[in-house]
Design a protein around this nucleic acid. Structure first.
Lengths: 295, 295
DNA sequence: ATCACTGATAAGGTGAGTTTATCAATATGG
DNA sequence: CCATATTGATAAACTCACCTTATCAGTGAT
């Protein structure tokens, strides 16, 4: 499959010169001097062993060989152009965000529309997946991740601490409560009972948390968990920040004042893409949102 | 129509690397080092702001962007390849010869089949036109021209002198002859009577050639002229070398021993194409034919 | 555990491709 | 018809993009 092509720089020059039928204007388009165009055309003509242009006085026209060559060359360059334009469009015009369903549904989603309004030049693709996005394999520009902010090859900006506290529906509280002592929760139906947040929360309150804690409904996202809690299915360990509407309307009730903290939510992106236009735009908007919420 | 493309050398390297999915082998194909491939790939990735390959261990695969790019890039390069291959084929595989109809029909045509047998790799296109071929405008590789061998930008090799002598059919000679004195021909029907060869022939024999010589059949090629002479229409000024069969069989008779000479036939080609493979091959074969005929 | 093979990286050299300057030829306009 | 502007060709000199060499590090196979 080895190709036998003249120097591509010369081909590019020929293509432009054939379009303009004027070396000087071709030189302008290519941002070089007329002498360079002349040199490159001569180069490719020598290589092919045939003139591509007919010089008659101060006018150039295409030789038969040039006439046959030019349209195909131009078409090929159009293809290249189109291919790169498409990639650039996807790379720079589509912002792909990866986030866990919890923050995606409870926090990011409601705000994203505003970003879209502010920056209509970006198309937004939000991937709400449980797995951590693989920046190199998936086409993900930024991800919201939970952790300590240290991932190899990744640059992360802290958004807010990861907070969590047990919540349930008002009806559940009425039926099973009241709860005065955190340890009481060990006896009721806890959703996702083996979640690390449960262990952290109890530990932070010095409550002994048995390894064989009572099994319960086990779901893979805070969204489902919250929905179940709202339905009165049990107590869920939720991030209040993600359920503002449900808390305000009383559909979710915080049972104890203690809010657990463990790590933070980070806006993460590949090191090398930290300052790309779309990532920067999104980051700046996002951090402004965070600041506005905190204020 | 200004195009926005990454450096084409980098694009070429990417195309090869994407085909091989192996930088080292791509480097081999492109006759450069693996380091250079690595450099160019990095170049184009930086330019696009997105990785095109996923490096996992010692294996590379295409990123989503690379996957979208590679087929189109390859297709574009195929087009370029094809375009140049076609031109090269025409330039190097088709030998276009321009010659006046006289020598084309009487001398070159009968021999050309032998050249074709000797060099089946060339396709031959013979243009029998009266006008001198324009090397730069027409796609003519070589021309057989009559003259002194001096044309600007043209390199010419002498084939044989241009010889001419009055000829007619045996029946015409019987009917109108016999002719003892060249001046007698002034009175009979001469074909192409104002041809420069008639004037030259008479002048060389010290016969006064009146400017208002008798008009006669006027055709634009020695072939038609000869056919008319064979048909007994009159006396034609022909090149014996071009009518060997007709002379051998008596269909054409040379009337006087004097053979006029004026200039030569030359094998001419554009200066810069003198040593191109096909021109060289044709020239060498042609001159061998000339030598064989003369011997 | 070792070897072979991959791609990345740093340092340094060089020639292809550029610019600048100038010329010759030819349209253009008064 | 001459003056001027514009075109492409050419020569000489420069320079930086690209290459090579050398080395490292990670990975897979034996």
């Amino acid at each position: 499959m080895a190709r036998f092509l003249p120097p591509l720089s010369a081909v590019r020059v020929f293509e432009a010169a054939a379009r303009h039928l004027n070396f000087t204007r071709a030189a302008e388009e290519l941002a070089m001097t007329q002498a360079a165009v002349s040199y490159q055309i001569r180069m490719i003509e020598d290589r092919l062993g045939a003139p591509l242009f007919i010089r008659s006085g101060r006018r150039v026209s295409l030789s038969p060989a040039g006439q046959r060559l030019a349209p195909q060359i131009s078409a090929a360059f159009d293809m290249l152009d189109e291919a790169f334009a498409k990639v650039r469009e996807v790379e720079n015009g589509v912002l792909t965000i990866s986030a866990a369903p919890g923050i995606a549904a409870g926090w990011l989603g409601p705000r994203l529309a505003r970003f879209q309004l502010a920056r209509p030049d970006f198309a937004i693709r939000l991937l709400a997946t449980h797995e951590l996005a693989d920046f190199s394999r998936d086409e993900v520009d930024v991800a919201i991740r939970l952790g300590m902010g240290e991932w190899p090859g990744v640059r992360a900006v802290e958004m807010f601490p990861a907070e969590f506290t047990p919540m349930c529906s008002a009806s559940f509280l009425e039926r099973e409560g009241p709860f005065d002592d955190p340890a009481q929760l060990l006896a009721v139906l806890r959703l996702n009972s083996d979640d690390i947040w449960w262990r952290a929360w109890f530990t932070q309150l010095d409550v002994d948390f048995p390894a064989d804690a009572r099994r319960s409904l086990h779901v893979d996202s805070q969204v489902i968990e919250g929905m179940a809690a709202i339905a009165g299915e049990g107590v869920a360990m939720l991030t209040p920040r993600f359920w503002p509407f449900e808390i305000a309307t009383g559909r979710l009730v915080q049972i104890f004042p203690h809010v657990g903290r463990r790590g933070s939510f980070w806006l993460a992106c590949p090191e090398h893409r930290f300052n790309s236009a779309k990532v920067k735009a999104f980051r700046e908007w996002l951090m402004a949102e965070v600041a506005a919420e905190t204020a």
